[in-house]
């Protein structure tokens, strides 16, 4: 691989942009295709498919074998609420490879002492989310129980088409949340994407157990193929 291609690949990753390295296996010829330039590439259909799946793969095109090295941005987890569950979630998210940021405007909660090893922003979601630029490689978890705080992030996450949106709270709480989001103009299909109550149903009781269920649910949203009914969404 040419150093300039490797360098561009690393730069694209750092900028949270997807890219594909195309290697013709017979000759070793390579090119780097940025996500924005895929339409112009002769292999555009295969590139788009592989990128959507987020998986590197080998393809055959007009008698030649190509390997597509797919690079998608590292998964981020934005957690709203510097609470007991997110204290347990922070080390687990790190281990799972998620780049985590916690946001909570309540300064008594959002302290570095309570969260020694993770980015914590003691700000309102509306004030800091625009700069964080949510994208489809971002997971958002809502943990404050407070609509004043959670809803700001929920609206941003729905608009950004984040791959995972989870919200803590009972079914009743969630029904009210859905009503508020419908009033804010979101369609039912969009709201159906919210995982609520948050986390896989493994009978979690303690904050740590709930954190495990949330990590599992995020991994499931990231890795499992969408169901046929959701595929077109």
């Amino acid at each position: 691989m040419r150093l300039d291609l490797l360098s561009t690949l690393n730069a694209e990753r750092a900028a949270r942009r997807a890219a594909v390295l195309v290697t013709e296996l017979e000759t070793g010829a390579q090119r780097l295709v940025k996500a924005a330039d895929i339409a112009a590439d002769p292999l555009h259909e295969a590139l788009a498919d592989a990128l959507r799946m987020g998986r590197s793969t080998q393809i055959h095109f007009e008698g030649s074998a190509y390997f597509l090295t797919i690079q998608v941005p590292p998964v981020r987890l934005i957690a709203i609420g510097a609470v007991h569950i997110t204290q347990a979630l922070a080390p687990m998210a790190k281990l799972a490879g998620f780049d985590m940021t916690i946001i909570d405007p309540r300064t008594a909660f959002a302290t570095p002492e309570r969260f020694p090893d993770v980015k914590v922003l003691a700000e309102w979601p509306d004030d800091v989310l625009p700069a964080l630029r949510l994208d489809r490689y971002t997971a958002v978890g809502l943990f404050t129980h407070d609509p004043k705080i959670d809803d700001q992030a929920l609206i941003a996450a729905l608009r950004a088409d984040c791959f995972y949106i989870g919200a803590l709270g009972s079914r009743k709480t969630h029904a009210k949340r859905v009503e508020r989001m419908e009033a804010a103009g979101f369609a039912q299909e969009q709201l159906a994407r919210i995982h609520a109550p948050i986390g896989l149903d493994i009978g979690s009781v303690t904050p740590s157990e709930i954190a495990v269920s949330v990590v599992g649910e995020i991994i499931s949203a990231l890795r499992k193929k969408p169901k046929r009914s959701e595929a077109g969404a």
Partner: peptide
């Protein structure tokens, strides 16, 4: 780079 796997390969393609 792992470019192809068959069966229960330990690390995925890529």
């Amino acid at each position: 780079t792992v470019i192809e796997t068959w069966g229960s390969a330990p690390r995925p393609v890529g």
